[in-house]
Nucleic acid binder design. Structure first.
Length: 626
DNA sequence: GGCTGTAATT
C-alpha cells in the first residue's frame, strides 16, 4: 500500500524553500507516527508540485468533475494516495456524501488508502445535517471501516481513536463502545492525551457516568495533563445531569484557582446545573451575569432556564422569561419557541401553543423539521407541506419522511399521510427503527389500530427488531393490540435495557404468555435493581401467572431487604404472603434472616414468622407426599 | 490531516 510521503504534505505548503526534512513524528503528540516510514530510505517528496504539474491539475479536474469516479479513473496513473485524500476531503466538505463513498470505494479497490484516508472518511461519515438516524448509520459504518482498516494491515493511531471516540458521544451504547476503544488503545501501547481525555469526559457526561468522569479527570491530572476549559465544562456537564450543584460549585472554585477564566460555555453549563436542580434564584443571578458579560446575545442561556422552569412546573415564569427574551431583541432560531410550544401544548394551553406556533411561522418562512414535531403545530402543516415535500425530495431522508407522515396523520390528514408513506415506499426506501417508532407513536395517539397493526407487520417484514421505545409506545397507548409473540421479545429488551418498571407492566398484564425462562430472568433483575417498593407486587404478579417462584428469587429479595432495614414492613408482608401461598425460604436465606433480624429490631417477630412458614410448608409437603 | 465542552424534537 502506498503511504510513503504523507507526512510531507503539510510541509509542502510552505513555499518556496522546503525546510530540512522534519523529524519523523506526529509532532503534536510526540508519538510514533502510524506506519512511520523509514525516513532514511525514503527520498523526501518533491516540494510542492508546480502549479502546472500533472498531479495538481488532475486533482483540480477531478474536484470540478460532476462524476469524480470517472475522472479519477482517467487520472489513475498520475494520482497518488495523498491526492486522492484531497479529493475525498473535497467531497466531504461539499457534503456530497454519495461521491464521498464512491471515491472512497474507488480508492479502496486500488489500495490507495492510508490512515489519513480512513480518518477523513470517518470524520465525514460522522457529519450530518442532524437526523439521528443518519448519524447512527454512519456511526456503525465508521466501526465497520475501522475493522477493515485493521484487516488491511493499517495501524490506527491516536487520531483514529480520537475520531472514533468523538462519534461515541451521541449514541446509546457510546460509553461501552468508548471503553472498548480505550482498552484497544492501551493494549497497543498508545498513550491517552489531553484531547482523548476531553472526548472521554464528554462521553461520560453525555451518558450520565458522573463518577467515571471524576475518575478520568483525576487520572488525567495524575498523568500530568493540566485540565483546560473543555475538560472542566465536560465534568461540569456531568454534574448538571444529576443537578449536583455542590460539586459543580467546588469545581468552579478549582477552575478559578487554576488560573482559568470561565467562558460562555462554562457559564452556560453552570446555568444548566442550577436550572436542572431547581435553583432558580441562583440561575437568574447567573443569567444576569451572562447578560452583563455579553454572553446572552443568543437564545441558549434563556432556553436552558426556560426549559428548567417548564420542567419544574413553573410555566408562568417560563412564559415571562420567554417574553423578556423577545423584548430584549434576542433572536430565536426556534429552540426557545419549541420549548414553549410543546410546554404549553402539554400543559393543556392549546390556544397559546397554537398562537406561539403562528407567531414563529410569521417570522420564519419555513418550519424546521424539529418544530414540526412539537405537537401543537399540526394545523399549520398544510401551509408548509410544500416546503417539507421539497426538503424531502432533495434529501431523500427517511427521517424527514417519517416526521411528515406522522405530522399529517396527527393533524387529521390521513389520506395525505398515507399518500406520503406510499411515495416513500415507492422510492425503494427502507424503514428503520426510528422512522417506524415515529409513525407508531402517531398511530397509537390517534387510536388508529389498523395502521398500528400494518406497521408492526411492516416491522417484521423489514427485519427491524422493536426496541424499548417501540414497546413503551405500545404499552402506553394500546396494551391490547400487542401481538402475543412480541411480549417475550419486549420483556427481554426491557430487562436488558434496565427498564424494569416497564418490564413489570408487561409481566403483570401478560405473565401467562411468557416463558418461565424469561420470567426468571426478569425476576432476578428486578430483585437486584428494581424499585424495592414494588418487589412484593412483582412477586404477586409472578405467582399469579401460575409460575412457581423459585427459592433463589426469594433469597434475592430477602438480601435486598436486608440492605434496606427501613423496609422491614414490606419484608414482613412478603414472608406472610409466602406462607399463605405455600412458599418458604430456603435454609440459607433463613439463616441470613435470623442472623440479621436484629437490624430490623424485630428478632422475635421474624423468628415467629419463619417458623410459621416452615410449619406450613411441612404440612403442604406432607400433603404432597400422600 | 483527522480529534474535545453548553439549549428544544425523535
Amino acid at each position: 500500500m502506498e503511504v510513503s510521503s504523507v507526512p510531507m504534505l503539510a510541509a509542502s505548503r510552505f513555499l518556496p524553500a522546503p525546510p530540512p526534512l522534519a523529524p519523523p513524528s506526529c509532532s503534536r503528540r510526540n508519538l510514533p507516527c502510524v506506519r512511520a516510514v523509514p525516513q532514511t530510505v525514503e527520498a523526501p517528496e518533491a516540494p510542492n508540485p508546480p502549479r502546472s504539474s500533472p498531479r495538481r491539475s488532475a486533482v483540480a479536474e477531478v474536484k470540478a468533475s460532476a462524476n469524480p469516479v470517472a475522472a479519477l479513473t482517467r487520472f489513475e496513473d498520475v494520482l497518488q494516495t495523498q491526492d486522492c485524500n484531497i479529493i475525498l476531503r473535497h467531497c466531504g466538505d461539499a457534503r456530497r456524501w454519495d461521491d464521498l463513498s464512491k471515491v472512497f470505494e474507488w480508492m479502496q479497490e486500488r489500495e490507495m488508502t492510508n490512515a489519513a484516508s480512513y480518518s477523513s472518511y470517518f470524520k465525514y461519515l460522522g457529519l450530518s445535517r442532524n437526523p439521528a438516524r443518519v448519524l447512527q448509520v454512519r456511526f456503525d459504518s465508521s466501526f465497520k471501516l475501522y475493522d477493515e482498516m485493521i484487516r488491511e494491515g493499517l495501524t490506527p493511531d491516536p487520531f483514529t481513536y480520537s475520531t472514533l471516540l468523538s462519534g461515541c458521544m451521541k449514541f446509546k451504547q457510546g460509553y461501552t463502545k468508548a471503553m472498548g476503544l480505550i482498552n484497544e488503545l492501551n493494549s497497543r501501547g498508545l498513550q491517552m492525551d489531553s484531547v482523548i481525555y476531553g472526548t472521554l469526559l464528554a462521553i461520560c457526561a453525555s451518558h450520565n457516568y458522573c463518577e467515571e468522569a471524576e475518575v478520568y479527570f483525576q487520572k488525567m491530572k495524575d498523568e500530568g495533563h493540566t485540565p483546560n476549559l473543555f475538560h472542566y465544562s465536560s465534568l461540569l456537564n456531568a454534574y448538571s445531569e444529576n443537578a449536583n450543584h455542590e460539586k459543580a460549585e467546588l469545581l468552579m472554585k478549582d477552575l478559578r484557582s487554576s488560573g482559568l477564566t470561565p467562558n460562555e460555555v462554562i457559564l452556560n453549563t453552570l446555568l444548566k446545573v442550577y436550572s436542572k436542580g431547581g435553583l432558580f434564584e441562583k440561575a437568574k443571578e447567573l443569567l444576569s451575569e451572562l447578560e452583563a458579560s455579553g454572553f446572552a446575545q443568543d437564545e441558549m442561556p434563556y432556553s436552558i432556564l426556560i426549559d428548567g422552569l417548564v420542567k419544574g412546573g413553573k410555566i408562568q415564569e417560563a412564559t415571562m422569561l420567554f417574553n423578556e427574551m423577545k423584548e430584549k431583541g434576542v433572536k430565536s432560531d426556534g429552540y426557545a419557541f419549541s420549548i414553549m410550544i410543546s410546554a404549553l401544548h402539554r400543559g393543556g394551553h392549546r390556544q397559546e401553543s397554537k398562537q406561539l406556533a403562528k407567531e414563529f411561522e410569521a417570522e420564519n418562512a419555513t418550519y424546521d423539521l424539529v418544530l414540526l414535531q412539537c405537537k401543537g403545530l399540526s394545523p399549520s402543516i398544510q401551509n408548509n407541506r410544500r416546503y417539507a415535500y421539497k426538503g424531502l425530495s432533495i434529501e431523500r431522508d427517511g427521517y424527514a419522511f417519517s416526521i411528515m407522515i406522522s405530522a399529517l396523520h396527527r393533524g387529521g390528514h390521513r389520506q395525505e399521510s398515507k399518500q406520503l408513506a406510499k411515495e416513500f415506499e415507492a422510492e425503494n426506501a427502507t424503514y428503520d427503527l426510528v422512522m417506524l417508532n415515529t409513525s407508531l407513536r402517531s398511530y397509537c395517539s390517534t387510536n388508529d389500530m389498523d395502521s398500528v397493526m400494518s406497521l408492526l407487520k411492516k416491522m417484521d417484514d423489514s427485519n427491524v427488531s422493536p426496541d424499548n421505545i417501540t414497546f413503551n409506545t405500545l404499552i402506553r397507548y394500546s396494551k391490547r393490540i400487542v401481538p402475543k409473540s412480541l411480549h417475550e421479545k419486549a420483556l427481554g429488551i426491557l430487562v436488558s435495557a434496565g427498564l424494569l418498571k416497564d418490564a413489570y407492566v408487561i409481566v403483570k398484564d401478560n405473565a401467562e404468555l411468557i416463558s418461565p425462562r424469561s420470567l426468571e430472568k426478569f425476576a432476578k433483575s428486578f430483585m437486584a435493581s428494581g424499585n424495592i417498593n414494588l418487589i412484593n407486587d412483582v412477586m404477586k404478579a409472578l405467582n399469579h401467572s401460575g409460575w412457581r417462584i423459585s427459592q433463589d428469587i426469594f433469597g434475592r429479595a430477602i438480601e435486598r431487604y436486608i440492605r434496606k432495614p427501613d423496609k422491614k414492613q414490606l419484608l414482613l408482608c412478603l414472608l406472610d404472603w409466602m406462607t399463605g401461598q405455600g412458599y418458604s425460604v430456603d435454609s440459607s436465606s433463613r439463616n441470613l434472616l435470623l442472623k440479621n433480624a436484629h437490624i430490623f429490631g424485630q428478632t422475635q417477630l421474624i423468628a415467629e414468622v419463619l417458623s410459621k412458614q416452615q410449619a406450613a410448608s411441612r404440612t403442604i409437603g406432607q400433603r404432597h407426599k400422600k
